[in-house]
Each structure stands twice: as C-alpha cells, then as structure tokens.
C-alpha cells in the first residue's frame, strides 16, 4: 500500500506539486487524471525516487520507502531499446531489477510473451512493431521487474484512437486476471472510467487533488460499460472536476 501525504515539489521558481495526498491499496487500480503539465509525471519521479520531494512524505506499507523502491515505472515514451529484441527488452526488467542472469532473464521474458500478445515476436526488434505492440512490450518489461506496484505514465497517449481503445480493453482484461497494483496517469477521462477502481483528479499546475472518485461500475467492463448511464454520469462529473480547476486559470 502506498500513501502520499501533502507532497510538494518545485523546480526553481516553478511550483509543480502543491500538497498532493493520495493512497493506493494493494491490488487496486488507481488513475490520476489531470491536464498536461500539472505535475503527473513529476509525481512518478518522486515515487520512484528519481527526484527528491521538497515537502510531504511517502509511506509504503506504513514505513518510509527503502531503495530500490517497490515500484516499476513505465515511461511516457516506451523507451524500448532498438539494439535489443522484444524478448531482450522484456528481459531487461528481470536482469536489472530482478538481478537474474542473462539466460534466466531471457527464459522468463520468453514465458511472458503470450500473456502480452507478443508470441512469435520475441526475436523482432521494436522498430518493426506496431504502436500497440510496442506498448505491450513496454508493459511486459515493467511487469518483469517483479515490483509490487506498476506506475504507468500515459501508456496509450501516443496511440491512434482505435488502437488506444483496443489496448484499454486489453489492459482491463489482463488486469482482471493478474490483479497488479496499478497507478495509471492519463488525461483521457474515458480511459480512467473504463479501467479504474478509483480516480484522482489533479488541477492545473501547481498540482493538487481537486477530486477523488470511486468507480463502482461492475467488472468485467467492456465497450458496453461505457454506454451505461452510470459511466456517462461519472464522465460528466470528471470533466466538470477538470474544468473547475481550469476555470481558475483562464
């Protein structure tokens, strides 16, 4: 379980996070929804220990985090290495984070391929993959790290709308089976509704939590779920929460 209390961060004179508090329970899917530049990626940098916070605290299972943090990060760009095959890219998680030998890492990576719909593509290099497959490979590499929590930074942001919907549905399915603890950054309201147990809405920079929403839509969810009145109502509420923050800056 991750608890973030009153987190603050500035870059020089630029206040990026102004007291963000949130928590993520074991096995929960939490989304962080907010406009571009409100400090969502910065929040992840602090959670992974890459950037120090200026104030506030992070507790993991009730205690200050130890290094390396029990979080596996998936960057906004997929950051797949072109000099490695898909399998070797996934193996990176086992190799570096898991401390497994090269051969064992490869074997474990190979075993993950079917789960991520990449069977038969293990020896392909990432530049030959479609955008959707690249994201799945990057997600596999994140899972391969064997950490408790997955931090996914706009994983589908760069995809075309159709592929994005496919991947959202796919992630929903695979999450229902694997029950990872996930924190997903997005600025796509529909994506947050489709996937999350809970949604935090951040206001524009400096980021603060302007709203917290339980998503009580039944699972499994699909395209039909999005058409339900409850989902539509939630989407409207989320959009309003996002706008409240924005009106303040306009």
């Amino acid at each position: 379980m991750i608890e973030v209390r009153n987190l603050q961060k500035s870059y020089g004179a630029l206040d990026v996070l102004a007291g963000v508090s949130l928590h993520v329970e074991q096995g929960e899917f939490v989304s962080i929804l907010g406009p571009s530049g409100c400090g969502k990626s910065t929040l992840f940098s602090i959670l992974t220990g890459i950037e120090p916070a200026d104030g506030g605290e992070i507790l993991i299972d009730g205690a200050p985090p130890t290094e390396p943090r029990p979080c596996a990060w998936m960057p906004q760009s997929d950051a797949l290495f072109p000099w490695r095959t898909v399998e070797q890219n996934i193996a990176l998680g086992f190799e570096v984070a898991g401390g497994h030998g090269r051969r064992e890492a490869s074997e474990r990576a190979r075993a993950l391929l079917p789960t991520f719909g990449l069977e038969g593509f293990g020896d392909t290099r990432p530049y030959h993959l479609s955008g959707g497959m690249r994201q799945r490979a990057a997600l596999a590499r994140t899972v391969a790290q064997g950490r408790d929590t997955l931090l996914l930074d706009e994983p589908f942001g760069a995809l075309d709308a159709l592929t994005r919907t496919d991947l959202q549905l796919w992630l929903g399915d695979i999450w229902a089976r694997e029950r990872w603890t996930v924190v997903l950054i997005t600025h796509d309201v529909r994506e947050a509704v489709l996937l999350s147990d809970r949604i935090y809405v951040l206001g524009p920079r400096p980021g603060t939590v302007v709203g917290e929403f339980e998503v009580s839509l039944p699972r499994p969810r699909g395209i039909a779920t999005l058409g339900s009145p409850a989902a539509a109502e939630l989407e409207v509420e989320l959009l309003q929460a996002l706008r409240v923050g924005q009106d303040a800056t306009l």
Binding site: S45, I50, P68, A72, W73, Q76, A79, L92, G93, Q145
Partner: peptide, 26 residues
C-alpha cells in the same frame, strides 16, 4: 542516449556502470 531509457534503468536500481553498459554505450 534516450533520457527515459536512463531514468528507467535508474528506477530499476541501476548505477552508472550498468546504465553505461546497457544504454549509453550502445
């Protein structure tokens, strides 16, 4: 080298020798 790739390795607990070998050199 891709900044995200380096940051990724650092979040995995890698230090300079590993990031050098796995990202910077290639």
């Amino acid at each position: 080298s891709d900044r995200d790739a380096i940051t990724l390795l650092r979040t995995m607990g890698a230090r300079w020798p590993t990031t050098f070998r796995l990202v910077r050199l290639p």
